[in-house]
Write a protein that binds this DNA or RNA. Structure first.
Length: 434
RNA sequence: GCCCGGGUGGUGUAGUGGCCCAUCAUACAACCCUGUCACGGUUGUGACGCGGGUUCAAAUCCCGCCUCGGGCGCCA
């Protein structure tokens, strides 16, 4: 449709063809208005029954809501029209008529619950707010990619079908690979390290991860988007610097380029780019502060993982993004390096948003002997990871990295109540379709 | 994996044993209306997740099943 004009571009004193969905028809009797909606907005089509061809009027006004129509006519300036212009049609063509009963209402007059919306995602994305989330998601990824390139990272793509998991403990989705046992990858962790060990040095990936945990919460998905970074000759401090720059770049990109979308989500006033630097609390400081809030019935002791309630109390206390560093080595995975001067402490870190964990990362163990010891300490068989460990015999630089939960970044940025809102077609405990 | 709480027209809801052949909004159908912008008005259409039980009487109480949401654990 070469001659199609976006509704937003229809200027007075031109004859245009606009095409889109019938948002609403308001029939006032002698005059009726059809509101046509497309990617860029809406435009009013005027039907004056006495003065216009009966067949034209009938075609336009009989089209059920959400039908796809193409309208050709003169654009006129009209102060009484919602956008200041309206189209007087010469011809109206119904390209695809919609059923009269819709499973949800794209005008937003009647709310729909999330499962209903997800079952009918296309209709849901015709709502301004629905569309806005994914326009912002796109911008967030664009800005993140740019921030990665600014630190000399190369975008890579690693396999999602793998022979072994990353950490052993997590539930993986098993699949059959030409008669052999295989799994959907739960993280690009090991692969990005293998590339960081080459002279590509610094890499990032934005891609899917799969986790077979049967959790049922507003912040977990079984298929999520991981934004990963790994850099050779980086320590955990530099990795945190990169992490901070990517998160801030994502917010800045959205702030600069998504004004309309933020408006559609009622965030125009509230949206702000987080202040830097993000505070870096040690694990020990974190548990002390949590204990001091009195939010937990039982005081945390060194070595405990942070319970959800504690994370929230600390988030309220800090009031913005913050890192937790120097975790006990025992509760971080084998590939995270421990401090040289204290083996009970790891270089692992988490980036927290007041509502939830966003990132985990750390400096990696690049010394093969220590790595193998780590495998054994966690009850994993190093033989199963031969493809990974053998590379550490051929010169592995010190390196560090992290992974952001992409949907969590988006949901915290946009104050979404449920992570499923941040995915077009979420995969969760119940949902496999669409 | 453990533990809670829901399922009422297409959609969103009211309804806690009889006042319910079920409320309201929106939608849909028909009619009226020449400036709507959540258009308005009149009339109408359309539902108690499935199966069993208790009771004179069940949307409402009990049991099983299906299904959805949430909390925790764990994580991104």
């Amino acid at each position: 449709m070469d001659d199609r004009t976006y509704t937003a571009d229809a200027t007075p004193d031109e004859t245009v063809t606009v095409a889109g969905w019938v948002h609403e028809i308001r029939d006032l009797g002698g005059i009726a208005f059809l509101i046509l909606r497309d990617k860029t907005g809406r435009i009013q089509i005027k039907f004056e029954k006495e003065e216009m061809d009966d067949e034209l009027v009938e075609t336009g006004l009989d089209a059920p809501r959400e039908s796809v129509v193409s309208v050709t006519g003169a654009v006129e300036e009209e102060p009484r029209a919602p956008t200041g212009v309206e189209v007087t049609p010469d011809s109206v063509e119904v390209l695809s008529a919609a059923d009269t009963e819709l499973p949800l209402d794209p005008t937003g007059k009647v709310e729909a619950e999330l499962p209903t919306r997800l079952d009918n995602r296309t209709l849901d994305l015709r709502r301004e707010a629905g569309q806005a989330i994914f326009e912002i998601r796109s911008e967030m990824q664009r800005a993140a990619r740019e921030a990665f390139r600014a630190v000399d990272a190369t975008e890579i793509n690693t396999p999602k079908i793998v022979a072994t998991g990353t950490e052993g403990g997590t539930e993986l989705f098993p699949i059959t690979y030409f008669g052999r046992e295989a799994f959907m990858n739960q993280s690009p962790q090991l692969f990005k390290q293998l590339v960081a060990g080459s002279n590509v040095e610094r890499v990032f990936e934005i891609g899917p991860i799969f986790r077979a945990e049967e959790h049922n919460t507003p912040r977990h998905l079984n298929e999520a988007t991981s934004i990963d970074f790994e850099g050779a000759f980086c320590d955990h401090h530099e990795a945190m610097d990169v992490c901070e720059s990517v998160v801030v770049a994502a917010y800045e990109g959205v702030a600069e380029n998504c004004t309309e979308e933020l408006g559609a989500l009622d965030l125009a006033e509230d949206f702000s780019v987080p202040e830097t630097p993000f505070p870096r609390l040690t694990y020990e400081e974190a548990i002390e502060r949590i204990n001091a809030t009195g939010a937990l019935d039982e005081q945390l002791v060194w070595g405990d993982d942070l319970p959800t309630e504690g994370e929230k109390a600390l988030g309220d206390d800090v009031g913005g993004h913050y890192f937790i560093t120097d975790w006990p080595a025992d509760i971080k995975p084998f590939y995270i390096m421990d401090h040289d001067d204290d083996e009970t402490l790891s270089t692992g870190f988490d980036l927290m948003h007041p509502r939830m964990e966003l990132v985990s990362g750390g400096q990696r163990e690049h010394r093969r002997e220590q790595l193998i010891e780590g495998f054994e300490a966690q009850g994993l068989d190093p033989e199963a990871f031969e493809y990974y460990t053998k590379i550490f015999r051929y010169g592995m630089p010190p390196h560090a990295g992290w992974a952001i939960g992409g949907e969590r970044l988006l949901m915290t940025m946009l104050e979404l109540d449920n992570i499923r809102e941040a995915v077009l077609f979420p995969r969760d405990r119940q949902r496999l379709s669409p």
